[in-house]
């Protein structure tokens, strides 16, 4: 990938992140870049959204478990 390409990719990621934060998606830059990568590979966005949701729930569940243990 040439420099211009990298530059453009970064800008795209910046813009996407800005949009993501405006609509409160709660996604950070890195996560977003992974997701965009997946989208670019043709992964279905609906499924992806479900994955994100499920993983978050899982994380929350684990956290709450650890908290309740404390």
């Amino acid at each position: 990938m040439d420099g211009a390409g990298v530059e453009r990719a970064r800008e795209a990621l910046n813009l996407a992140h800005a949009m993501a934060s405006i609509i409160n998606s709660g996604l950070d830059r890195q996560t977003l870049s992974i997701l965009i990568g997946l989208c670019e590979h043709g992964v279905n966005p609906e499924a992806l959204a479900t994955v994100v949701k499920e993983l978050r729930r899982e994380a929350a569940a684990i956290e709450s478990t650890s908290k309740s243990k404390d």
Binding site: M19, A20, I23, N24, L27, C39, V43, N44, A49, K53
Partner: peptide, 10 residues
């Protein structure tokens, strides 16, 4: 897809 994803997640 990206937009859809963002919307769905948000």
């Amino acid at each position: 897809a990206v937009l859809y994803l963002l919307r769905a997640v948000s």
